[in-house]
Write a protein that binds this DNA or RNA. Sequence first.
DNA 1: ATGCCTCAGCTCCTGAGA
Length: 255
Amino acid sequence: MKLATWNINSLTVRLPQVLQWLADNPVDVLALQEIKMTDDKFPAADFAAAGYQAQWFGQKTYNGVALISRGPATDVVRNIPGFDDDMSRVLTATVDGIRVVGAYFPNGQAPGSDKFDYKMHWLQALRAWLRTELERHPRLVLMGDYNITFDDDDVWDPVGLKDTIHCTEEERYHLRALIALGLHDAYRLFPQAPKSYSWWDYRDFGFRRNRGLRIDHVLVSEALRPAARACTIDKAPRKNERPSDHAPVVLELAD
DNA sequence: ATGCCTCAGCTCCTGAGA
């Protein structure tokens, strides 16, 4: 079984790339972030024609998430229960016996800003809810655009970017706290090339110069960890014409 | 460089992303 996450920065613009990627990489579940469209615009028929079901939770202009799956998605939950939020960021469902949480974490803009405060509160609420969700569903995957790096290995210029957004100790504290719930960074369960990133700035030839960050993550629960077989970042779509700034991250689980 | 790209929208500029 394969699961993947991809921030596609507008599904309107990149639907053809997503369909092509699914044709080339027939994963069982694909979590999408930043679809940037209202629910009435979601191209469910296009996914159905490709053999995929879909759940979606859209929003005008910003945010918006979806879960694309071969099998049916049940017990669907939108956003974080108990946390009042006007942004569409989280979509959770059970697929093939696995609780899949697809999430678009807040960006946070800059430490000290209102958006950063919102990010901290959102992270707190996510963790509180995940604690109970993990009790109900031990076989759980949390994947998406976290907008947080774990450590310097996830940052192309750890000195220059020290304490800037995605790299602050406050954000990393929350990321480690998620790990402390009994989750594992699937990417680091396996040997990886140094300077591996999942996002590169559109500006200044960021991708060509490999000036990137690893901010898209797949976390697996303790119960699923023994089944993890591989976790990879697929840089191929970043080489497309009009690419997303993010690359897909793929987790392979033993059947 | 409060910049560089890219996207959406009350679209020919601005806000936001990361």
